[in-house]
Every structure is written in C-alpha cells, then in structure tokens.
Design a protein around this nucleic acid. Sequence first.
RNA 1: GGCCCGUUCGUCUAGCGGUUUAGGACACCGCCCUCUCAAGGCGGAGAUCACGGGUUCGAAUCCCGUACGGGCUACCA
Length: 487
Amino acid sequence: MSDAVRVRFAPSPTGTLHLGGARTAIYNWAFARRNNGAFILRIDDTDRERSTPENTAQILRSLRWLGLDWDEGPEVGGEHGPYFQTERHGHYVRALDAMRTSRAAYPCFCSAAELEAKREAARANGVSMGYDRTCRTLDAAEVASRLDAGTPCVWRLAVPLERGPVVVEDEVRGTLEFPIEAMDDFVLARSDGSPTYNFASVVDDAEMAISHVIRGDDHLTNTPRQVLVFEALGMAVPRFAHLSMIWGPDGKKLSKRHGATSVEAYQEQGYLPEALLNYLALLGWSLDGETTVVPPEVLTANFSLERVSKNPAIFDPEKLSWLNGTYLRDLDPDEFIARMLPWLERSELAIAADFTSRPDWYRALVPLISERVRHLDEVADKVAFFFTEPSIDDAALSKVLAKEGARAALEGARAALDRVVWNAAAIEAALREVPESIGAKPKDVFQTIRVAVSGSTVSPPLFESLELLGRDTVLARIDGAVALTER
RNA sequence: GGCCCGUUCGUCUAGCGGUUUAGGACACCGCCCUCUCAAGGCGGAGAUCACGGGUUCGAAUCCCGUACGGGCUACCA
C-alpha cells in the first residue's frame, strides 16, 4: 500500500525532550493513530559531538511517560532499521554514490577558511551568501586527480538551476514556493564522509517510506533543499506539514528563564502525562474551538493537520496547571492514590504511606484533597497533618489560638467530641452546638479547632478531616492546643 | 543583505464571504454556595480581527503593499 500513512519523530539526542519536541512527537503520533498509520521513532544522532546515549534514553523515557508508543524504532525494532542514524552509514554512502554517478552531487575542495572568506565578502557586498559554486565547474581531469591524491573534500548537491521553482504543498501552511535561484549547493557529506542533516534525513525518510513529514517550523526552508535531494535520488517526495514554534510567556524563544522546558521537569513537578499531552496538543491544534479537555483517546480519534494553527503559540503555565487540576479531580480514587503515594514517600516529610493496611482510609482521603491541588507535588504538604503532628504556624497562633474565645472553643469541642459517634456527620452535629453554648460564632469555633488539629488556618474540610484523624489523635491535639491558649 | 513564514480579547483558540452585537477556554473582577482553602454555579470586564489600499451588494474571512515578529542562509539539527 503506497498510500499508507507512515510518520516519524526524529529527535537529535543533543539534549532532553523539550516541550516543542514533545508537541511535534504528539502530533505525529496522533496523526498516525488517527489514520491507522505507523509512527516511527528515529534517532538523528549524526552530530556525534553533542549526541549522547543518556539523552537518547531520557527522550525515550519522556515519550513513554507521555503515553506515546511507536511501531518502529529503538526498543521495538522494525523492518526499516536500524533506527539510529549513526548505524546507517552504509545507506548514506550508497545514496551518495548514486548521486555521484548521476552527477547530482559534486566534490568541493574549498577549505573552511576559503568559504568563510567568501561569506565575508558576500556579506560586505550585500550579495546572496550561498556557496559560489567554484568547484562545480572544475574540469573532470582536475577533479579526478585531486580525488586520487586524497585531497579532503565535501560533497555538494548540484542544484538543478533549470528546474524552476520548488513548489511545496504544505499540509498546514498551504502552497509554498521557493525560487530555485535562491537555492544553495549545500553540503550532503562532510569531509569525514558523514552525512549532513539535510542528506541523512532525506535518505532515511525515503528508505523508511515516510508519507508525511510533520516537524517544526524551523525546518521550513530546509524543505525545498530536501525536495531536491528526493528528486535527485529518484524517490517519492513525502507530504510536509510544518508546525509553528512554541514561545515563552515573554514572546521569546522558550528557555530555562521561563521555568521548566523539558518534559522530565514537568513529570518531576507532579504533572500528569495526560494533562501535559492535552495541553501541548491544544497549543496549535483544536478539536472544535470549544473543547479544552481532550484526553488521549479523543486526540487520536480526531487529530487532523487541517486544524493545526499556522501561528506561533505562547506557552502558558497557568493553563497547563488548570488542566492538570481538572485531570487530577477526574481520577477515580484508587488511581489518584496510586499516583499520589510516590509523592508522599519521596516528600521532605518522608510520609510513611501505609496504603495496604488501610485502603479505605485512603479512599476517603482522596476527595478531601483532590480538588485542592493542581500538581501532585502539593499533596504531601496538604496531607501532612494526617500523618504527623503538625507544628502550628505563627500566623495561626496569633490570629486564632491567641484570641479570646479560643480556650473556651477548644474545651467545648473537646467535651462535645468525647463521646460522639465517630463519623463526619455526627461530629459536625456535635460541634455545631458548641458555638451557641459558649456564645461564639460558628466560624471562629471551627477555625480554632482547625488550627488545633491541622496547625494551619487552611485545611481540607474540617469534619471529614476529624473523622479520618480518629478520636484519640483529635482529642490529643486539642489538649495540646489548649495549653497554647491564653488563660 | 537574500529567501521563506506568521499577525483575531493579556494568553490558547473558534471563525474558512452574509447565520457575528466576533464564540469558547485560562487568567482577572463580582455574586452565590460555604467551617478555612479549593472545587462548582451564575454574571462581568476584555479583540476598532497589526496597519493601509483594493475586489465585492457585502471581508476577520479573497488580492496587493507596509509595519512588526520569527525562521533559514554551517562540513548543527
């Protein structure tokens, strides 16, 4: 089937997976799933200096964490491997040979210094800065002798000047037209024989039968160059779709200054993968303009390049947080617990989570906490007082416990709670009678109890919290707080 | 410099020539709910659709120009 959809995500392991790359991966993946196609992962590690196995491993981890799966690539194999460019050298050599014999590629003996000088001169004269094609017109004998002598050279594409403009029907930008005169005889293979990005990428996309190249906007002007290589190789030209960039909140390139840029960092801050996936998917694509919560399965069922936006988007951490909160709230209790427990154990408080010994207690805790957090890393702090004796913060002390009726409120509460049936409803009923008996406002009484028990003026709902804490703990904490009140 | 791309509320976007007094979401403000904080409900403010010309009975939507922003112009990807 030549019309089978085959797309690829081809990161360079020169760094971690960042937000922009993740979105590109997500779009490719969603497009493949939507069209019953194949999603291929290829590691473009031709830059040996900056590529590392650690980065590769981290990229794979982040992709998996996001919930993406690939049909071909590292860890899963496939018919078109290998999927690391550094392992595909032979393919590039053969492709270059073919282009040498067809004279689509020619050797260039200009030194780096010479090229730099030419660029300088061009810049100074205000002329186009592309390579001046000196070596393209060397006579055959000259070329042969230099090659035989082993003179270092790179191989350049002989741009077919007579071809006419390169027209690309981009799936998101529409018709793009590039004048052939503006096209440079760019380098295909370096003097050490290694392929450049624009060459390796084309050879691989061709051999891996990629049907749609969906990638970042920064590659837009590489497209006509690559089209020329596909044609020189006699291979079918894939469809292209270029995604606009993601910018930081200040409208500048997304960088560390704007906070986390790597997917891993969001994982560490307690974001849910489905929320990040959802947010990123909506940064440049929309289901209908109305829907903001788009779970993975809805994405893969509906994604289309037609609805991808042409303009760059600014990353908004606020909206991501909000979305994360909605996903957190939608989790069913057991799922919430599963995601929450690691965060309790690894928190500063090193809370000893004992889920297996009291699962129902945890299930009751979930609703108290899930609608009050936006990230999992906030959970430990919020639930700490259920697990350890809280220290009462200064503000709560002065604003609540030091107040006049505090002692009476606590003593009233203690008496009311002493013999009540221990469930939230009964606790509430009992405590609601305290204010009147001591001539205080309900709010003040409840707030005093809250501080005594949780150590803070802000906590999950009081009566439910008391129930979960247990009578002994609650009474002990109230007694402890009484000692702190003014006599 | 050359080539290419983009421009709708602060932000993400809907809109694909008339149904638009430009819709939704985040953020913001107010009210309700309420034991705090949230969550939720209701309401509000917020966009002369970058600007200027056309085309058309009619333009955010089509065309041209300008401005601003961005990308590429490497033996990086």
